[in-house]
Structures are given as structure tokens and as C-alpha cells.
């Protein structure tokens, strides 16, 4: 082996090392979203929309649990309510308030549909997610949509 080829090898492994180091620094898969934020992606990805993010903290400042979970019939289960836009415009679920009277109306699509595409339905920071379920990683953009085609 010539000295030149040897140098190439050394530099090659150095560059590879640098690249690996950089990816480790740049890619941080952990999210630190607010406790009790719910990502709802039953149908959103399939319809070409970002998943909806429901912040419990914002709503419990304004309403007691009872309003949604007793009066409006939201089940205590992430993704268990099978909410669709059709139900919302008929005044069910989110539509009971998000009608332009109690809260802003449905034309502000991106206010709810603001999640990273490909994020599955889950309850952020739940004990179950922390202890039992594997950590999720958002799929690369567009991948989940390909699957559905």
C-alpha cells in the first residue's frame, strides 16, 4: 500500500467520524411537548392534512373536565372519539365550541392541524407511553401518505 492510499484511508475514516458526530448532534429525536398534549391522527394524514394537536392545558384553564368529558361526550381515550370534520361542522365534539361563538371557527384549519406529519395518535407524556410503549419517531414527511396510496 502506498503512502498516498494510506492517507486516503485515514482521511476517509476521519470524515466518516466527523459526519457521525454531526448527525448525533443534529438529530435529537426526543420531543418535550407539554404534558397531556394529544396528537390525533386517525384520519388526518390519510386526508393529506397535518395531524391535529389538542392541548389539554389550554382548555383546562378555560373549562373544567366535565364540560367536554360529561356534557360533550368525549371519551377518556386518545383517538377513541373518531372525530371527523363532518361531526365538527354539525356542532359535535370540538364543533360545540369551535363555531365562531364560544371559540374561533373551523376555517382556522392550521391552528389544530399543526402536528408533524406522520406522528401517530398518542397522549404525550403519558405514563403508559413512558414505561410501556416504544418511543415514537415521526415518519419522514410524506412517507405515511405513500403507504395509504
Amino acid at each position: 500500500m502506498t503512502a498516498q492510499a494510506m492517507h486516503k484511508r485515514v482521511w476517509g475514516s476521519m470524515v466518516a467520524g466527523v459526519m457521525m458526530g454531526l448527525t448525533m448532534l443534529l438529530v435529537s429525536p426526543s420531543s418535550n411537548a407539554e404534558y397531556a398534549d394529544v396528537v390525533i391522527n386517525n384520519y388526518a394524514d390519510a386526508a393529506g392534512m397535518r395531524p391535529a394537536v389538542f392541548p389539554h392545558w389550554f382548555h383546562r384553564i378555560r373549562f373544567r373536565c366535565k364540560v367536554c368529558h360529561a356534557d360533550l361526550g368525549f371519551k377518556f381515550k386518545a383517538g377513541g372519539n373518531k372525530i371527523t370534520m363532518a361531526k365538527i361542522i354539525d356542532g359535535k365534539f370540538c364543533g360545540a365550541c369551535h363555531n365562531g361563538e364560544v371559540a374561533w371557527s373551523v376555517e382556522n384549519c392550521a391552528m389544530c392541524h399543526s402536528g408533524i406529519p406522520g406522528t401517530p395518535t398518542h397522549f404525550h407524556g403519558s405514563t403508559l407511553q413512558r414505561l410501556v410503549a416504544p418511543a415514537y419517531k415521526p415518519l419522514p414527511v410524506g412517507k405515511s401518505m405513500k403507504k395509504n396510496k
Binding site: 426526543s30 420531543s31 418535550n32 411537548a33 407539554e34 398534549d37 396528537v39 397535518r50 394537536v53 392541548p55 392545558w57 389550554f58 382556522n108 392550521a110 391552528m111 392541524h113 399543526s114 402536528g115 408533524i116 406529519p117 406522528t119 404525550h124
Partner: peptide, 23 residues
């Protein structure tokens, strides 16, 4: 309690993410 654009579940490509209140 990071603001939505920094919390890792909101999409930063989405303009409305920046309108949302910070916890």
C-alpha cells in the same frame, strides 16, 4: 413548558404553529 414551535410535536413548517400560545 416550551412554546409550540420548540416542543417537538408541532410542525414548524406550519405558520399557525407560531400563533399558538406558549404554555
Amino acid at each position: 413548558n416550551p412554546p409550540p414551535p420548540e416542543d417537538g410535536i408541532h410542525d414548524v413548517e406550519n405558520e399557525a404553529t407560531f400563533i399558538l400560545q406558549s404554555p
